[in-house]
Write a protein that binds this DNA or RNA. Structure first.
Lengths: 343, 343
DNA sequence: TTGAAAGCGCTAACAT
DNA sequence: ATGTTAGCGCTTTCAA
């Protein structure tokens, strides 16, 4: 590779016989230059392939055209979808995104916040995770937007989320409408508000339809085993215990899939004997057999709403008070796993 | 949030009654200061919560402690695993990673290279994608490491990959050993070297075992339909066509899963009537039913090898010529989909 | 319409 | 062991 050194504004200025100020104006199209000089400068830029040194620009302007994105696990289809949409949005607006994978590690999250701060990001987006955002390590006054994460109150923190309560309600209602009377829930046992809200929706639906709430049908898995394997095992346990049930609401699709596999292993037919519904509508839900009914979150909507909010905040747009918080609706996706038996 | 303005070295110097040079030395632990001044300076740093302004540092040093990561689709478990490992590696070394999702769009890739260049990244990692790397838009002399992407020759470009040829061979051999005679392949029709190599391995295995190569059993899907849906449809086509076959090698797990679903829809039993093997060992392969045999790539090995190589290059370590290219072995994971019938 | 010059925060060469 | 100073590449104020 030929060592084509990058050219600076100063050098362009010399080559074009103008001052650096003029070159800067041309580059940023800030007016106050003649068409003639514009052309002269532009020719040299094209010829030498000038690219802005963003470090210098950032230093000077205290803006970096960069945002930080905190995500628990990119290695999770639901999160990676979201990340993809956010990244796409900001790419179009000429921003770069630092994707920071915390693996749910609080120390790592704090370290990332420090790093983002020191790299002068113009704003931060947080997906999911705990309430506490380590705002105290941020030394600058930058906006923070959360998705599916209800932050403790701070001036500069905003949030956008799906209506998880409604999702829990709708999921349960779907099972009820298809004839289930004894509905189990398989969720993750943590104070993560998202799961709590889904559980609340489930309970309210039971109440509204006059069904009994069986505590022994509320399976709250440890964070470490709240995955496919864990819920498959838990479901096997439940089946062994002989406690009767005819419907399962799993609070994400992988857990739901674990449930379905466990049922299948025990020769319990879905949807005939037991109906199942999941949450998130990731690819496993429509590709498994029988296909899995689920609650679809508006991924694109969430990503766009959150991104545009952050962008506006970074550009000091006035944000109405009622825009500090957004809750997007979710919808039931009916598939085979909640199909009603023919009468 | 209180507007805690970030403090600069200059201010620290004033507060500690020392020069900026001394403060800088303390911060970077560059020696030539007394324990006494170290303490004095450190106290102020702790008290005011100083954080380095990385834009300034980058500008001064022409190094940013940042790497760019080009990836086709983060929204793909195999890639996201890889990204996760790479990110983890660099986080530990105090580097930040710009994850750039190209969606296989060449223009986007070029735009990203420009942006990374202008943000002074110290190195670039490319996952998969086409041979051509737009090195010409890079104005600085930074190293580039590729994973699963055989780049056109350049001085500063290195690569690490799995042995895809061997993978194709082993997959086919596994089917042959379990008794298959007429083996179909479902792959992606593109000049992507990865798929080409897997196909070559398949052909060589057939040859070595004296099996006929049926052109009509080589299903090369369009890039746009080389996914779960596409291969499910293609397999349905093949079944309808009545061309006999007793084994299928699908060049990734989602395609393999599509094949299995199509077979199941046509009441063809796996592994009794037809055996199936995939590639990548993503979660669907061990959680589907019957579980899917597959070829496992050494994700962690790939990520670490590539990352440490890039790190060494960024720090101007001498790299031996034979280290410019790495090929990691793959292994067969035997599961139910290639189980032999009891005699 | 253009230029001169200051300064963003930092490092490092050189001086002491 | 410590200080002085130049300069990385850029924007912007002020002056012309």
């Amino acid at each position: 590779m030929d060592k084509k050194r990058s050219i600076s504004i100063k050098e362009i200025a010399k080559l074009a016989n103008v001052s650096v100020a003029t070159v800067s104006r041309v580059i940023n199209n800030n007016g106050r230059f003649s068409e003639e000089t514009r052309k002269k400068v532009q020719d040299i830029i094209d010829k030498y392939g000038y690219t802005t040194n963003m470090a210098a620009k950032s230093l000077r302007m205290s803006k970096s055209k960069t945002v930080g994105l905190i995500v628990p696990n990119i290695d999770n289809e639901w999160f990676s979808h979201l990340v993809l949409e956010i990244e796409k949005y900001f790419f179009e607006k000429n921003y770069s995104v630092f994707i920071c994978n915390t693996s749910q590690d609080e120390q790592k999250e704090i370290a990332y916040f420090k790093s983002l701060d020191s790299k002068l990001v113009d704003g931060i987006m947080c997906i999911s995770g705990i309430e506490e955002i380590p705002t105290d390590v941020i030394t600058r006054n930058i906006p923070i937007v959360c998705i599916d994460r209800k932050p403790k109150d701070h001036n500069n923190v905003y949030y956008v989320e799906s209506n998880h309560y409604s999702g829990g309600y709708l999921a349960t209602e779907e099972l009820i409408k298809k004839g289930c009377k004894k509905i189990a829930i398989v969720s993750r046992n943590k104070t993560l508000s998202v799961n709590k809200q889904r559980l609340e929706g489930y309970r309210q639906a039971l109440k509204d339809y006059g069904l009994t709430e069986y505590k022994e049908l509320q399976i709250l898995l440890d964070p470490s085993s709240a995955n496919y394997e864990g819920s498959r095992e838990a479901m096997n346990q439940l089946i062994k215990s002989k406690i009767p049930f005819d419907g399962v609401f799993a609070t994400n699709d992988w857990r739901a899939y674990g449930v379905m596999v466990a049922l299948s292993e025990n020769h319990i037919n879905v949807p005939h004997d037991v109906k199942v519904i999941g949450f998130d509508d990731i690819s496993i839900s429509h590709s498994c057999h029988p296909s899995l009914s689920t609650i679809r979150q508006d991924t694109v909507g969430l990503a766009q709403k959150a991104s545009s909010l952050l962008l506006n905040l970074m550009n000091d747009k006035e944000i109405q008070m009622e825009e500090r918080r957004f809750i997007l609706p979710v919808e039931v996706i009916q598939r085979d796993s909640t199909q009603k038996d023919p009468e």
